[in-house]
Computed example of a mutant assay.
Amino acid sequence: SDRRRRARILMKQYGRTINLKNDPQIIERYLEHHRAIWPEVERGLKSIGIERMLIFKLGRQLFMFMETTDDFDPGRDFPRYEAINPRNREWQELMASMQEAVPDAQPGEWWAEMKLVFSL
């Protein structure tokens, strides 16, 4: 069945975090952009194997949850996503201008990878 096939494909899950810059106007701009995400961005993310992406906010901290196809590789596929369409890179640069890494991020890490510690 289609449902069983989807369950087989959605094998990888990721949790990542980043902060928005500490400026209420920047935070509101970020939220406005995500209420009206560019269609190229949505298509581009799906084309590299991201089946589901949720972003939660508390204060200025963001938490992103992603479900991806089993063959998704962030190191390979996010650069590929930016290369698919110049608008995707433009979106990434715009979002990055409103963000800053969390203190616990690894050197050079933007969205910090979180470790799964419990699953029900």
Rank of each mutant, 00 (worst) to 15 (best):
D2N: 15
R3G: 05
R3F: 12
R4L: 12
R5Y: 09
R6I: 09
R8E: 13
L10M: 10
M11N: 12
M11A: 14
Q13F: 01
Y14H: 15
G15N: 00
T17I: 11
T17D: 00
L20W: 06
L20N: 04
L20P: 04
K21L: 14
K21H: 07
K21S: 05
K21Q: 13
D23E: 13
D23A: 10
Q25L: 12
I26F: 01
E28C: 01
E28T: 01
E28D: 11
R29E: 07
R29P: 00
R29H: 02
Y30T: 03
Y30K: 03
L31M: 08
E32T: 05
E32V: 00
H33S: 02
H33L: 08
R35T: 03
R35Q: 09
R35W: 00
A36E: 08
A36R: 12
A36V: 05
I37Q: 01
W38S: 10
E40A: 12
E42D: 08
E42T: 15
R43C: 03
G44V: 07
L45T: 00
K46G: 08
S47Q: 13
S47T: 10
G49F: 11
G49W: 07
I50T: 04
E51M: 11
R52V: 04
R52S: 03
M53S: 05
L54N: 06
L54Q: 09
L54S: 03
I55C: 06
F56G: 02
F56E: 01
F56I: 06
F56V: 06
K57L: 14
G59L: 09
R60Y: 13
F65C: 04
T68S: 10
T69S: 14
D70E: 15
D70G: 14
D71G: 06
P74Q: 14
G75T: 09
R76D: 02
R76F: 06
D77M: 03
D77L: 05
D77V: 04
D77E: 05
F78Q: 02
F78H: 06
P79F: 10
P79R: 07
P79N: 09
Y81W: 15
Y81Q: 07
E82Q: 13
A83H: 06
A83E: 12
I84V: 07
I84D: 02
I84K: 09
N85H: 15
R87A: 15
R89W: 01
W91R: 00
W91M: 02
W91V: 02
Q92H: 07
Q92Y: 05
L94D: 02
L94V: 05
L94T: 13
Q99E: 15
Q99N: 05
E100Q: 15
E100F: 08
A101C: 10
A101Y: 05
A101K: 12
V102F: 08
V102G: 09
P103R: 11
D104H: 14
A105M: 07
Q106H: 12
Q106R: 14
P107H: 13
P107N: 10
G108C: 10
G108T: 11
E109F: 08
E109C: 12
W110H: 10
A112T: 14
E113A: 12
M114C: 14
M114D: 03
K115L: 09
S119Q: 14
L120G: 14
